[in-house]
Design a protein around this nucleic acid. Sequence first.
DNA 1: AACGTTGTCAACCGCGGAAGG
DNA 2: GCCTTCCGCGGTTGACAACGT
Length: 237
Amino acid sequence: MGRSPCCEKAHTNKGAWTKEEDDRLVAHIRAHGEGCWRSLPKAAGLLRCGKSCRLRWINYLRPDLKRGNFTQEEDDLIIKLHSLLGNKWSLIAGRLPGRTDNEIKNYWNTHIRRKLVSQGIDPTSHGPISEPSAAASSQREANPSKIDKFVKEESQCCRQVRERCPDLNLDLRISPPYQNQESFKTGTNSSTFCFGCSTGIQNSKDCSCKEGNITNSGYDFLGLKSGVLDYRRLEMK
DNA sequence: AACGTTGTCAACCGCGGAAGG
DNA sequence: GCCTTCCGCGGTTGACAACGT
């Protein structure tokens, strides 16, 4: 016996959302809250599949979304987290307030991947890209493609930045979720988080902070008790 | 101006896992 | 333990915009 479809596909709209559909969805969620996506379309008077509604809300309509370009800090954090977590976009998104997994995934595929390649870094393994064969190199040297030109320009640009700012330390540290600056400065908020909570998975079965397992010196990041994983305190030598 | 190519990003699809009976 | 249902995730697609020739 196969799984039933999540909705009656014959009677659902597909493709881009209209302003009216957006309004209906937002109004319904404001009135009734999130949850029960399967029954939401009918309740909200939408001819959409529940999954589609959920996706539209999470990726586009949620009021806490941060729109606009990614900052350098976000860029670096994504790379760092990707090297630790791989393509776990939802976990990575949990570390970037206001960003969605879909947005980060798209950004990775269109920007960061290319940026890493241009720096000679394999975006999958985060290790150095193996050297191409000598024949291929000389062939590319003689007849460079657009990508080759782009990669060369990017590399030159990176070199120039390093030459101008040799002391710039771009190493990042990974921290628990952002705490407001006041409590951060005064130290009034001494609470710490396990990795699950730090990625937004509060009260997961693996949550260790609620059990008092975390000491004030750090939190459990990927099973490593760490006290200095704080990318927000970047040290500029 | 017209056409082709490339880049971007919203949306879809299918799968896996959790929850509940 | 098995089955069904639902949710959420990651990979992929396709429409549209921007850019190049």
